[in-house]
């Protein structure tokens, strides 16, 4: 969670663009990763991420912080944008492109070609998971949201979220090994 987040949200609700800008800076890369791993296409991910923050800024007055983290609110907007996007067009996943992106970052950290092979398999396995399982895995282990935040974002209880997470990991492992 961003430091002084509640104050920033209150100022953004008053229409202060600068405050929303700070929220954007903090959450934008997370939302982008979430969307990109789900749609598998960089330009589509950029469009959807942009629309997510546009909607958030447009409707920030309606956001109520009581028991509903701001991160969960943003992720739920992003989720709906991705669902709408999949309804409009068939999912087109470019694993190679996404794998290259990750490889580029990883190579600078000292990983080699083996890493790319691993990422291709991993990403393909993620794409084969159910939408909600993807959501939980990305939010929990990529963007490091708490169980509570994930539960609020997907509209389930924390218990149900833990069950989905357990099932998602099991299915992912099975897909990778197969």
């Amino acid at each position: 969670m961003l430091e002084d987040e509640q104050n920033l949200i209150a100022r953004a609700k008053e229409g202060e663009a600068e405050a929303f800008g700070l929220l954007y800076d903090f959450y934008m890369p997370r939302i982008y990763r979430f969307v990109l791993v789900k749609v598998g296409h960089r330009e589509e991910a950029e469009d959807l991420t942009h629309q997510t923050f546009l909607k958030a800024w447009e409707h920030i007055e309606t956001y109520e912080s009581r028991g509903y983290p701001f991160s969960s609110w943003l992720y739920s907007i992003a989720r709906n944008s991705v669902i709408d996007h999949h309804r409009r067009s068939k999912p087109q996943v470019s694993i190679d492109e996404l794998g290259d992106d990750i490889l580029l970052e990883k190579e600078t950290q000292g990983s080699g070609l083996d890493a790319k092979i691993g990422w291709d398999v991993m990403l393909e396995a993620i794409f084969r998971l159910k939408g909600i399982e993807q959501d939980v895995l990305i939010m929990r282990f990529v963007d490091e949201l708490t169980h509570q935040e994930v539960a609020k974002a997907i509209g389930k209880t924390e218990g149900a979220t833990k069950v989905i997470q357990h099932r998602a990991l099991k299915n992912l492992k099975k897909l990778i090994e197969s």
Binding site: Y32, V37, L98, I102, E105, K106, Q109, M122, F141, V142
Partner: peptide
Amino acid sequence: KLGGLRAI
């Protein structure tokens, strides 16, 4: 391994 996706 999933955490490695944070590099994106």
